[in-house]
């Protein structure tokens, strides 16, 4: 594992933990899109179905469990926590996220490495992850002031994507590792969405 990949994983982990701690410490999820969080939970569940079938390393397995549980904890807080759920901006968070799930699923059925359950789940999770931030971006643009922590959350997520692309470039040259084109393309789309956000974020 190279440094880019590790930094990518760490910024990804950090973004999720920052968000969870923010919600837990302030007992408020104001400015956080529950739809984006639900999409991420679906992404992790679909991608890490291989947890028990393909063992890569202890590091990978632990991280998979951490991502699934932390994203589930965020969704649980926003739906069930007696104080937190009252602070959810339901009227603002109107993005039709089911459309994204359906589109990602159809894409995964058409474009996959192999027409198997595992590969379709994997491709589905990659496509969905690329667009899962959209409800959050829409919510951020509606709110007048971007909350510091919510801004940081998106910042760390963006850093994660950037590091992963550097990781693929690095692996391409050092290991001759051909990262699958599905991840390349989706990764670029995803990073582009963040770049667009930061452009406006820093203008403000």
């Amino acid at each position: 594992m190279n440094a880019f990949r590790f930094l990518g994983d760490m910024t990804h982990l950090f973004s999720v933990l920052v968000l969870l701690l923010k919600i837990y410490a302030t007992k408020s999820c104001s400015g956080v899109s529950r739809k984006t969080q639900e999409l991420y939970m679906v992404v992790f569940l679909a991608r890490y179905m291989d947890l028990f079938t393909d063992y890569i390393s202890l590091y990978n397995s632990v991280m998979k469990v951490v991502f699934i549980t932390s994203s589930a904890a965020i969704v649980w807080c926003m739906r069930r926590h007696p104080q937190v759920r009252r602070t959810y901006d339901k009227e603002q968070d109107t993005f039709r996220h089911v459309v994204l799930v359906a589109a990602a699923f159809v894409l995964a059925l058409i474009f996959n490495e192999r027409f198997t359950f595992r590969e379709i789940c994997w491709a589905f999770s990659i496509y969905l992850e690329a667009v899962a931030i959209l409800p959050q971006l829409v919510l951020l643009q509606r709110g007048r002031n971007v909350d510091n922590l919510t801004g940081q959350y998106v910042f760390f997520l963006g850093a994660y994507r950037a590091f992963y692309i550097l990781n693929w470039i690095y692996r391409y040259f050092t290991e001759g590792h051909h990262s699958r084109w599905i991840s390349w393309l989706s990764g670029l789309v995803q990073t582009g969405l963040y770049a667009d956000f930061f452009y406006y974020y820093f203008l403000r």
């Binding site: 291989d50 393909d54 990978n60 991280m63 490495e113 192999r114 198997t116 595992r118």
Partner: peptide, 10 residues
């Protein structure tokens, strides 16, 4: 046929 590679990234 070759066995599909496992996904080694997160």
């Amino acid at each position: 046929t070759d066995k599909p590679k496992a996904h080694d990234e997160l």
